[in-house]
Design a protein around this nucleic acid. Structure first.
Lengths: 197, 197
DNA sequence: AATACGCTTGACATCGTGTCAAGTTGCTGT
DNA sequence: ACAGCAACTTGACACGATGTCAAGCGTATT
């Protein structure tokens, strides 16, 4: 996929490292170049724009971290188990893409390409939610009176990167606690289950 | 509060109007000036920076829209009613501050002043969540095994502007539906209530 | 030895924010 | 009536970041 020249990969890795360390600070093209031990223009030779670099980075991370494999697993389960599996898989992946995601979200308001790319990803994520909801409906576990559309909307919203950020980053929650409570919350909303300690 | 010269108010109103109409697009200082029928520098005479303008705008909106009054109402209620009242009051206020909030959030990653100001507001909002949770605890309605801290964290997260944005703006939800479901979701999480259609 | 490729160097355009200095207008107090 | 002040205008400029352009340089391939 794409080409994988030495320099290109170094740039991607440097960019990733920067985004992961400087959590919060803005990573400039010149920073990336410096960190990759390459000239600023070399970066532009491989990526036309900053948005393109970040987008390529998400794909790069997807490959290196095997997103597909992670998410495919949840696809074999049915009913409630499928929901749990999906929340586990996606929830565990959030911290991995979070740094790039944050950078993309930050530039989304001003950069169309970045916005489209991120929306696209979130749309793909929504498919997973929709599938989980459908699996629930199939098993007759979807709460009475709850349509598949609003169910998907809410699940998608609950599992958003921003909610993970709020709980884990801002409130200092444990990743395990986050997963556990998201499962409970989703079940409560989708299946009208009671949440027990 | 602050001074209220004609020009200053015109700038604030113009800025607000722009943010409300151009939903999404970036509002530049020159745009604000043009819309207010004033020179760009006049804007800088009243507000040292863009962040300061936006922050002043939030306060201006708070005054004009009577946030205090709206939120104070919820403070007299107790137990479950207090939670409902708070969600109603805050939920109804989100669409009002959303345009400015969006602008502030957009510049938060690169602008310390903007970030601090927005964090401050969200902190104030958190107080409301905390108080609602305390009222619940006081009434013995807080779910067994749920501490006040995680309860507040989750309520705060659920009621975030971004979640409202996701459901109402992105998914096209009705404001009433948003309020209704947020109440149900909060009760489910905080009080282990079942959600019934 | 010639060529092509990948990278470097350094200059430059653009855009938005924020600053500065000098000029204009209109209101105020005496 | 007039000096003086405050608010606003005009136009120029610095800065930081992105993105572009052109020329040069080293090295592997043929």
């Amino acid at each position: 996929m794409a080409d994988a020249s030495i320099t290109r990969t170094r740039i991607l890795n440097a960019c990733r490292a920067l985004l992961e360390s400087d959590a919060g600070a803005v990573t400039r093209m010149s920073d990336v170049a410096k960190a990759a031990g390459v000239s600023r223009q070399a970066v532009y030779l491989h990526f036309k724009t900053r948005a393109e670099l970040l987008i390529a980075l998400t794909r790069h991370i997807d490959e290196v971290e095997h997103v597909e494999e992670r998410l495919v697993a949840s696809r074999s389960a049915t009913g409630l188990e499928r929901l749990d599996a999906y929340i586990e898989a996606w929830g565990a992946y959030i911290p991995v893409i979070y740094p790039v995601g944050q950078a993309l979200m930050a530039m989304a308001p001003t950069d169309d390409a970045a916005r489209l790319a991120w929306d696209d990803r979130m749309n793909a994520m929504r498919q997973g939610c929709e599938a989980a909801v459908k699996a629930l409906a199939m098993a007759g576990r979807l709460r009475a009176g709850l349509g598949e559309k609003p169910a998907t909307d809410m699940l998608w919203t609950l599992l958003s990167v921003r909610n993970w950020e709020s709980l884990v980053q801002d409130c200092g929650w444990d990743q395990t606690r986050y997963i556990k409570d998201m499962k409970a919350l989703s079940r409560a909303y989708l299946c009208a289950e009671i949440i027990d300690a």
